[in-house]
């Protein structure tokens, strides 16, 4: 598999680490045990396009949000995580 890193260009799978579902959002500081449990453990078993976190640890160390079809491995979008490229925030 090959992933087009928005910063480095197209790279082979071995440079990336898979984390998992990018949909759940970490509850803010006041989150209940129930909320955190959902965030931590409850996952959809998607057959088709899925939003996932990948880490380009073998390259630029950016965390990426990737939409991948779990049936075909087709990647339809790659975006940097919210905290990447923060130098340009407000600029």
């Amino acid at each position: 598999m090959r992933i087009v890193c928005p910063f480095c260009g197209e790279r082979e799978l071995g440079e990336f680490t898979y984390l998992g579902d990018a949909k759940p959002v970490r509850p803010s500081a006041g989150g209940s045990e129930h909320d955190v449990f959902d965030y931590l453990y409850l996952r959809d078993n998607v057959a088709g396009a899925m939003s996932e976190h990948w880490y380009h640890g073998g390259g630029c160390r950016a965390w990426l949000k990737i939409t991948r079809n779990t049936l075909t491995h087709e990647i339809s979008s790659v975006e940097p995580a919210a905290g990447v490229g923060a130098a340009k925030v407000g600029g």
Partner: peptide
């Protein structure tokens, strides 16, 4: 890797 995840994904405002 975990700290980069925290920095880039969980707490991008920092």
């Amino acid at each position: 890797q975990h700290l980069e995840f925290c920095r880039q994904v969980l707490f991008p405002e920092l």
